[in-house]
């Protein structure tokens, strides 16, 4: 029975090993717990949607601007469209460089068929046949001149000028018709400030231009054509390709 009398501490060594292994096991388990409770997934909002909306917006604004610049000088239609294309080409060549810095690939295309062929827009909110037919162009107007060039009409179609107490309805019945309603004509019928609305806008197509002063500021609401802008945006995880109508010049 040498082992019971041996005091060289071999069992203490063994105990040391057991404790060491125990510590390792405990550490691994604790580590697992910490890891699981901290496992983060993909959370938070999605910032790419703002980039897409922004791209839709700026490409629309650029088309409006290019249209205004191109139509500012009197020239044949083909020449104006060529000038418009120059500005848009410039825009669409530079835009991808800016977005590329954010890791996004973008492309902008435009469709000027309506302009080229002289297809005027509907008098709806967004200019398309399916857009809202009854809509308010502008509120709180002090004075304004309204020019309407109708190309097609199915009655009823009218423009309503409404003050807080009274409504003056301007009816249109025949097309083609160019009509200008001056500030003094409006004031003779209704007192300012007033609201200008279009009623049954889907029944007619053509151009309009409303210039004046509202809420102390000058404004222009004008539409010649509806052009289409197609924007594509792609990132490593997302792709979007969206076509939106753009009302030009404003």
């Amino acid at each position: 029975m040498e082992i019971t009398k041996n005091e060289d501490a071999q069992f203490m060594l063994l105990a040391g090993f057991i404790i060491a292994i125990g510590l390792v096991i405990t550490t691994v388990m604790l580590n697992n717990i910490i890891f699981e409770s901290n496992m983060a997934g993909e959370a938070g909002g999605d910032p790419i949607k703002y980039d897409v909306v922004n791209l839709m917006r700026i490409s629309g604004d650029e088309m409006k601007s290019a249209y205004r610049n191109a139509t500012n000088v009197s020239a044949p239609n083909d020449k104006m469209i060529a000038n418009f294309t120059v500005q848009m080409n410039n825009f669409s060549a530079n835009l991808p460089k800016i977005y590329a810095l954010h890791g996004e690939g973008v492309n902008v295309n435009w469709d000027v068929n309506n302009w080229k062929n002289g297809y005027y827009a509907n008098f709806t909110d967004n200019g398309t046949a399916s857009g809202a037919a009854n809509w308010t162009v502008i509120e709180n107007v002090m004075d304004s001149n309204i020019t309407v060039n109708l190309t097609t009409i199915t009655t009823p179609f009218n423009i309503c000028v409404t003050s807080s107490t009274k409504t003056w309805q301007i009816n249109f019945t025949t097309a083609p018709e160019n009509r200008t309603i001056s500030s003094s004509q409006i004031i003779a019928n209704i007192s300012s400030p007033y609201t200008i609305s279009i009623i049954n806008g889907s029944n007619a197509s053509g151009k309009f231009n409303i210039k004046g002063n509202a809420s102390g500021k000058n404004f222009i609401r004008s539409r010649d054509y509806i052009l289409y802008s197609t924007v594509t945006l792609s990132t490593s995880i997302m792709r979007a390709n969206i076509t939106i109508p753009v009302s030009v010049p404003w």
Partner: peptide
């Protein structure tokens, strides 16, 4: 929540486009 963020952002994009009278040709998230 991460997934919901994508679905709602797709929803927003489609709604904005449609209210403008536009067409959504493609919106995809991987």
């Amino acid at each position: 929540s991460g997934f919901v963020a994508r679905v709602t952002s797709m929803d927003t994009l489609v709604n904005i486009t449609r209210s403008n009278g536009g067409t959504v040709n493609q919106v995809e998230y991987d």
